[in-house]
Structures are given as C-alpha cells and as structure tokens.
C-alpha cells in the first residue's frame, strides 16, 4: 500500500512508526506474560539477555573499519583492567577518533 507523501500523511507515517516501535518495546513483556515461567524459562531469559548484548556488538567487530575494531579492543582492555565503564568508553572513542585522524581523514 503506497500513499502520496504530503505533510499530513507524513504525520500519519510517523505515528505508525511510533506505534510499531512502542509495540516492540512492550511486546516482549506481553508475550512473556502469556507464558508459564519455569526454571528453564528463567535460565533461557538470563542467557538470552546477555547474548543479545553480545549480538548487538558483533556487527561492528565483524563489519566495522579498523578504527572501530581497535576501539572495541581498547574498551575491552580498559574495562578488564580498571572496571571503570566511562574510562573504557572514553578509551574506545579516543582510539576510533585518533585512528581516523591519522589514517582516514
């Protein structure tokens, strides 16, 4: 279904986007509410939630440029040695920006 894009229909498209985005946010809870939560489900959720974090980061490591990969290494190294989140993120940004300043731009 295609619609002519005017200012008015543009608002409609945005409203639909907002609705869909909100449904994805409450959807997980709504689905879980209809399931019986046993011990296995709890363990599944526990492992799945950490795995989702991992899965969000993997594309940058696989498809990112060298600067992005180096920044991930820097963040991991600083986090594992100091356990300070903001320091680890700062290291990642500095490495990415520094790498690109030197080799890209």
């Amino acid at each position: 279904m295609t619609i002519a894009l005017t200012t008015a229909t543009g608002f409609l498209v945005i409203a639909v986007m907002g609705l869909v985005a909100y449904l994805t946010r409450i959807g997980g809870v709504l689905i879980m509410a209809r399931m019986k939560i046993g011990r296995r489900t709890e363990r599944f959720i526990y492992a799945m939630s950490g795995s989702a974090l991992v899965a969000i980061v993997v594309p940058l490591a696989v498809e990112g440029d060298a600067a992005a990969r180096a920044s991930l290494v820097a963040t991991s190294a600083v986090m594992l040695t100091t356990r300070k989140t903001l320091l680890a993120i700062a290291a990642g940004i500095l490495v990415a920006a520094g790498w690109r300043a030197l080799f890209v731009y």
Binding site: V20, G27, G28, E42, I45
Partner: peptide
C-alpha cells in the same frame, strides 16, 4: 527494533 522484543522479555521477571 525487533531486538526490543528480547530486551523487554528479559526484563519481564
């Protein structure tokens, strides 16, 4: 945004 489904499910308990 489908990852929100999983994020939201993980917070259900």
């Amino acid at each position: 945004n489908s990852r929100h489904l999983l994020m939201s499910a993980s917070l259900y308990p």
